[in-house]
């Protein structure tokens, strides 16, 4: 297994190569975790991004010598990776569905966090890409919030911004995405 703590620290120190390596490894790790999750007892065949990221963190970094800033960097890096894992997964399922033979078991009751709908997720992914074109910071905030499950405070730390700034940006991003995703559904 790659040494994540080392990669994290190098990436934190500004090592671009380490950052790329970290992202690639994370993608592989998360995909592997997701695959296991899917093969397990969960019958809904959906993935909870933050649960995956949390588990990955505990497995990969959460040792005794991990620092708080390790945790922040890890989640920041994992946000993009998990987004890719989920989107790839949703795309694949969309293909499977078109191919037929995929029966979805509806989830009953609400004792389990509700699953992400593929369609919603793919729409979000598109909209985030569009947002990133002209306002990368906001897209990043959303990614961190959604895919790494970071709180506003944590996002602020990762991006080096104040909580109130993050809150303001988040509000605009949310409204813009809602408008955009709503519109794209009608097309």
């Amino acid at each position: 297994m790659p040494d994540f703590t080392r990669m994290l620290r190098s990436a934190q120190a500004g090592d671009a190569e380490a950052a790329r390596e970290l992202a690639a490894s994370l993608y592989d790790e998360l995909r592997e975790l997701a695959r296991r999750e899917m093969a397990g007892e969960r019958s809904d065949h959906t993935l909870q991004p933050t649960a995956l990221v949390n588990e990955a963190y505990l497995r990969l970094v959460g040792g005794k010598d991990a620092t708080f800033s390790d945790r922040d960097s890890f989640f920041a890096a994992a946000a993009t990776a998990i987004r890719r894992v989920l989107v790839d997964h949703a795309r694949k399922r969309a293909r499977d569905k078109r191919g037929g033979g995929f029966a979805r078991v509806p989830l009953e009751g609400f004792d389990v966090a509700e699953p992400l709908e593929d369609e919603d997720l793919l729409a979000l992914d598109d909209a985030l890409a569009a947002l990133a074109d002209f306002d990368a910071t906001k897209a990043r905030i959303v990614e961190l919030r959604f895919f790494a499950g970071l709180s506003v405070e944590e996002v602020g730390k990762v991006l080096g911004a104040s909580e109130s700034t993050v809150r303001r940006e988040w509000r605009v991003a949310r409204a813009w995405l809602r408008a955009r995703m709503d519109g794209s559904r009608g097309e």
Binding site: P49, T50, L116, D120, L124, R145, R174, A179, M181
Partner: peptide, 22 residues
Amino acid sequence: NDAAGDDAFSRVETRTRTAGED
């Protein structure tokens, strides 16, 4: 679009962040 409704974004929001910010 400032307020949440039953739109795609809000659905993603409730389904990721409830499990997320833990």
